[in-house]
């Protein structure tokens, strides 16, 4: 019962947060001198009347607070509005969400699969040459500008013709067998996953290493060692379980990142994900689309934190008191 109450309380607490987020973003976007109709205006074959019609349709002729109120009231009713080119925002998001989910979940999976063990190794061999080498290697991954790395990989793809040049599926995807489809997807995913994996690996590795070091230093590990358990037994039986707790919080953050996409990488690889959509929307001030994606990002963040907290309560009896 306590947990449900706690969840409800948390959800109610987040409402003002969402409100603040929406106000900040809406006003910042609207204060910018970007004209959502710029492309139309520069098109010699678009007439003045068409432009006026568009201005009215997008409500650009009204004061900003009025625009905000209009947006907020329809958002609350679940209507995300239309993009500046007249498509439904909900449709646009729906098209992209599965693609981004696919990419980010693979990346997260891979990062955890490699990052957590490397973090543990780093902690076990603390201060050794091996530990240092791991940190240096992961730093290297973090140091390359993502878009630059992506471009280099694309050129590698062209030169070797091992991988397709960006995108997610081949033009004849629909005619392929199931196996062929999976292979096609995999081929397209290798490069973007490589870039995102390289970038996010070091963060997780460091985090895990720090967690482990923290735990290894604690009293009960010393106690376990004193009991005469072998070092590996100490690590796997005792240290690891406790070191994973902070990672659950981290997992919550990763959950939030699921849908925010990796704009620059997606852009270079022409990956049909949310990141590219939002990037393009921001660049031309397509307010309904930007607002919808920002709100989605915030909601995911809140949800992620909440999920992590609940998981923590379940896994760690010591924290259960929080709900009261």
């Amino acid at each position: 019962m306590n947990i449900i109450k706690y969840i409800l309380k948390r959800i109610i607490q987040t409402l003002p947060l969402l409100f603040i987020v929406s106000i900040i973003s809406f006003f910042i976007i609207r204060l910018s001198p970007i004209d959502p109709l710029a492309e139309l205006r520069l098109n010699p074959s678009i007439s003045q009347e068409t432009l006026q019609k568009e201005t009215q349709r997008l409500g650009l002729d009204k004061p900003i607070p009025v625009q905000y109120a209009k947006w907020a009231s329809s958002f609350v009713r679940g209507d995300l509005g239309v993009t500046s080119s007249g498509e439904r925002v909900a449709d646009k998001l729906k098209e992209r969400i599965p693609n981004t989910l696919l990419l980010t979940s693979i990346v997260i999976f891979m990062t955890w699969l490699v990052g957590v063990p490397l973090g543990i190794l780093g902690a076990v061999f603390h201060k050794s040459q091996f530990d240092r080498l791991l940190t240096v290697l992961s730093s290297i991954g973090m140091a390359i500008p993502s878009f630059f790395f992506a471009i280099l990989l694309l050129i590698f793809a062209v030169k070797t013709s091992l991988f397709p040049v960006g995108g997610l599926t081949s033009f004849d995807f629909d005619e392929m067998s199931l196996g062929g489809k999976i292979l096609d997807l995999a081929k397209h995913l290798v490069l973007p996953v490589t870039v995102l994996f390289t970038i996010s690996l070091s963060g997780l590795q460091r985090q895990m290493r720090a967690n482990m070091l923290d735990v290894m230093d604690s009293e009960y590990i010393k106690f376990a060692r004193a009991k005469g358990l072998s070092e590996w037994q100490v690590i796997f039986k005792h240290a690891l379980r406790n070191a994973l707790n902070p990672l659950i919080t981290l997992l919550g953050f990763e959950f939030a990142g699921l849908l925010s996409g990796a704009a620059l990488t997606e852009y270079v690889f022409q990956y049909p994900g949310l990141g590219r959509l939002i990037l393009e929307a921001v660049m031309k001030s397509d307010i309904n689309l930007v607002m919808a994606s920002l709100m989605m990002g915030s909601i995911m963040l809140v949800l992620g934190n909440l999920l992590a907290d609940i998981l923590l309560i379940i896994t760690d009896p010591r924290i259960r008191g929080v709900g009261k």
């Binding site: 910018s32 001198p33 921001v282 001030s285």
Partner: peptide, 18 residues
């Protein structure tokens, strides 16, 4: 937290564009 909740890269672009 509200500021943190806005994905930083997009916030960066929005601000730079203004």
């Amino acid at each position: 937290e509200a500021v943190m909740a806005i994905p930083s890269f997009y916030l960066l672009i929005i601000l730079a564009a203004i």
